[in-house]
């Protein structure tokens, strides 16, 4: 159930490197980039040696199967610990360590609760275009990352649960994407599109490609507070298992998102979002519920 120490060694070294780099970082991030926009993790304008860490608590629900017959209901509370370091003015390296409490309720009334590691994610962001060095209005970034199979495999009576209910994919999953950020204080827009391509998993499952588009508009009504709204869409291909296509996998979901960002100090941000499922077009019996997220981000 636990990842090997070898799988953790490299990410831990990277995390250490990021935190060590933080000791050389500058203060007052908004002053340094020349824009008063309160930016959440991943939406910021990078500057050399900018180090950000964040802790995000989130909750979400998922149900796979026919209610009252063979449904499995998941409720997950997750803690994402993320550290990001701008190695240069154009390149940001980040590492995300998820820890999750998962409650799985089965149709036969049995319930499992467990705390697990999720899949570690290492991500790089390369700024391809910025209209000007100081106070840029437009940022276009290339994203590339790798999800590592650090989550344990979850089974019931010796049978693996569907991939949708696992804490991770149990495979090495590279991802690529594009990000665009627009800053025109008091407004800003954050657009991210990513494509994750799974490799064959350790348990014989092969998750299909998954594409995700997030669009968040922010209106910073006050220098220390902004409201946010947008959409978060995801399309998943069908998962393949040892016996072929897995039922109740694949499809599309679109969430309407709303939230706020608030400055708790010069270097600390509070960010909260709710995700309301607006369109669900999953194949088979698969539903996702309302999700919510609260995170604190600190600049060193």
């Amino acid at each position: 159930m636990r990842p090997s120490s070898g799988a953790l060694r490299t990410p831990l070294l990277i995390a250490l490197l990021i935190l060590c780099a933080g000791s050389k970082a500058l203060a007052c991030p908004t002053c340094t980039v020349g824009d008063p926009t309160l930016t959440t993790m991943g939406a910021e304008a990078p500057y050399r040696n900018r180090v950000r860490v964040s802790a995000g608590l989130s909750t979400r629900g998922d149900r796979v199967g026919e209610p009252g017959f063979d449904a499995i209901e998941l409720r997950e509370q997750r803690l994402d610990l993320t550290a990001a370091w701008a190695a240069t003015e154009r390149f940001v390296l980040s590492l995300n360590l998820p820890l999750a409490h998962r409650r799985l309720a089965y149709a036969d009334l049995s319930v499992d609760q467990l705390v697990t590691l999720g899949d570690l994610e290492l991500r790089g962001r390369l700024v391809l275009f910025r209209d000007r060095k100081f106070a840029p209005k437009h940022l276009l970034s290339l994203l590339a990352g790798l999800e590592m199979p650090t989550a344990p495999s979850i089974s019931k009576n010796g049978q693996k649960l569907p991939l949708e209910l696992q804490a991770g994919s149990r495979s090495w999953d590279p991802l690529v994407g594009l990000g665009y950020d627009f800053f025109a204080s008091p407004f800003s827009l954050h657009l991210v599109g990513t494509l994750r391509v799974s490799t064959p998993g350790m348990d014989g499952y092969f998750g299909g490609p998954s594409g995700r588009v997030q669009a968040t508009f922010q209106w910073q009504a006050h220098e220390r507070f902004g409201v946010r709204a947008g959409a978060d869409m995801r399309g998943d291909a069908v998962t393949r298992g040892p016996d072929g296509k897995e039922p109740d996998t694949g499809g599309f979901i679109a969430f309407a998102t709303a939230g706020f960002v608030a400055a708790l100090g010069q270097d600390t941000l509070l960010n909260a979002m709710v995700f309301l499922p607006a369109i669900q077009a999953f194949k088979g019996d698969h539903r996702e519920g309302i999700a919510a997220m609260l995170s604190v981000t600190h600049d060193f």
Partner: peptide, 15 residues
């Protein structure tokens, strides 16, 4: 960390 990750509880269902 080990004790945290080993945290697991189970309630039996129907049989």
């Amino acid at each position: 960390l080990s004790s945290l990750l080993a945290c697991h509880s189970h309630v039996d269902g129907t049989s």
